[in-house]
Amino acid sequence: MLTATDIHLSLGGRPVLNGVDFTARPGQITAIVGPNGSGKTTLLRALTGELRPRGAITLDGQDCARLPPAEMAARRAVLPQAGAVAFPFTLREVVQMGLSAGLSAARPEVVGQALRAVDLAAHADRLFQELSGGEQARGHLARALAQVWEPVVAGVPRWLFLDEPVASLDIGHQLQVMALMADYAARGGGVIAVMHDLNLTAMFAAQITLLNRGRVEAAGPPGAVLADRPLSRAYGTALRVNVTPPPGHVFVLPQTAAAV
């Protein structure tokens, strides 16, 4: 279980996070949503140990600030928003780097399995720099996946921290990657994802934290957080949440009516 309590963080003298509390359990997807500049990525970077905020962050009972980098790398992998790769490494070599950072380092077959999981097995020997934006994003996901390939090791869950894992993907690959995250969680791992797409979030996340200007606007299951009032306040625009009727019921959208 990951717990962050009363997180304060300033970047360049500007307060970005003001007393954020955040909890995530293994076995489910926890999403962080909110408008641009609300502090989503900063919160994720604080949780991964990349930034050092005020406040306490514990991962399965251990203080993250005290865990050495190699120990952290064995426990969690991180997918950053965008990552340019210097030098002409192949996709396979990049995924191999992730693998060698984790506990499955002695299992070379994991590279191929991770690439298959993100639908890139046919591109293993292409240069990473020559892949398209969406392919690069999935390549980095495969690298993170290879680093924490087994969701649970010796009873301790592994974690995936993902910053907008589906932002640059087409809808088919969006669903594929979301299903991959759900599967990782179902097998006992923890998944924390910064998300923009509220529909995909509602479909896959078990817990959602909605940020607004560096504070938590709402946190809880999708039904409670993705509601008219918190969403409208956070995004500064009147939003209405809808629910489709059960299957078999026909319904009519009056917005589609036009003058005959």
Partner: peptide
């Protein structure tokens, strides 16, 4: 060598992969 390979992905990614950047 391994540290420099990791740095090719950026300092943050190298740090996430357990490299003492």
């Amino acid at each position: 060598a391994r540290g420099l390979n990791g740095l090719a992905l950026g300092e943050a990614a190298a740090h996430h992969m357990g490299i003492p950047v």
